[in-house]
Design a protein around this nucleic acid. Structure first.
Length: 316
RNA sequence: UGGACGUAGAUU
């Protein structure tokens, strides 16, 4: 059983649903009894592959086979329901598990918060967060991050700011995910002061950055109209070891220049992007065409449009 | 051996 479980876990990383299901079938045909570890792995694989009905199918077969779900299997299944937008089913299962005497942990609550976030149900998320605390379950870093994201979807920057303060106060150290969510929220809300202050603080505290965080900083600069900072940042990325600009970074820069009417810069960045081996997508092309249009450089409009056709790209 | 989190852009 252990060998099978380990193999499935490895396959799950590559979202190889078919292979996982095949393995499980093989286990059954050889009368090797799958356990909770097997089923939770299978169920979480199904949800990562966006196959919630498969998760349900195997959860039911598990119950029929007489294997009693444990807490991990329950949470994996609740997660599968949550991702599929089946809030009622998820809550029902949660209640059922609780009736069985199960004490939910921080992971369970994070999953429920994620579900409400996807459903854009801020009140649901808020109530769950309160309930969690009332039950004496301490939110961890991921719980806070998930809650931040739910707040972000609801577009409530002041709540986000308060939550961030709370997590620092309870002694947690924000990671890249935390900072990415928060900067995105501030940027979208055009809270330039808070965004820039947070950026300063990141540097002072020496909080680690990664590529996604850099890219978020770039688009945050775009949101609050700070293209000089974006340029510095982009250069810093180029000089960095592990955060070299990727296609998102180039695209952000092109957008920043384009929205500021800086045609030359946008067009240079576009060339650099191609030189660096990235393929621009429709959005980049549209953006550039618009930019040339505004500058009345119609020959360039036509040139880029033909380039687009050469690439065989069409709007979605 | 098993469960949870983050990034852009089209005439807003």
């Amino acid at each position: 059983v252990v060998i099978y479980n380990v193999t499935m876990k490895a396959l799950r990383r590559g979202k190889q649903w078919d292979l996982v299901e095949e393995l499980l079938q093989e286990m059954l045909s050889r009368s090797i009894q799958p356990d909770n570890i097997t089923y939770s792995t299978v169920i979480s694989c199904a949800r990562r592959c966006d196959l919630p009905h498969k998760a349900v199918e195997w959860f039911e077969r598990m119950n029929k086979s007489g294997c009693v779900p444990d807490e991990v299997t329950y949470t994996a299944m609740i997660d599968a329901y949550g991702r599929a937008g089946k809030v009622q089913e998820a809550l029902h299962l949660y209640e059922r598990a609780r009736a069985d005497g199960w004490r939910p942990d921080a992971i369970t609550f994070s999953i429920l918060l994620k579900m409400y976030g996807i459903a854009e149900d801020y009140d649901g998320a808020h109530n769950t967060f309160q309930e969690m605390k009332a039950l004496g379950v301490a939110p961890n870093l991921i719980t806070y991050n998930t809650m931040l994201d739910a707040i972000g979807k609801a577009g409530r920057p002041s709540m986000a700011k308060a939550l961030f303060k709370e997590m620092i106060d309870v002694g947690l150290t924000p990671n890249q995910v935390t900072l990415t969510s928060l900067l995105r929220i501030y940027g979208k809300a055009r809270w330039a002061d808070d965004a820039l202050k947070l950026w300063e603080r990141m540097k002072e505290e020496g909080w680690a950055t990664d590529l996604i965080l850099y890219n978020t900083l770039l688009s945050m600069c775009a949101d609050i109209g700070r293209f000089e900072e974006a340029e510095r940042l982009f250069q810093e990325m180029g000089e960095s070891e592990n955060c070299k600009p990727d296609s998102w970074s180039y695209t952000s820069m092109i957008n920043i220049y384009s929205s500021g009417g800086q045609v030359e810069e946008a067009s240079n960045m576009f060339n650099k992007m191609i030189e660096a081996g990235f393929k621009p997508n429709v959005m980049v092309f549209t953006c550039l065409i618009q930019c040339y249009g505004k500058a009345k450089r119609f020959d360039d409009v036509v040139r880029v449009f033909n380039l687009l056709l050469d690439e065989g790209i069409f709007p979605d």
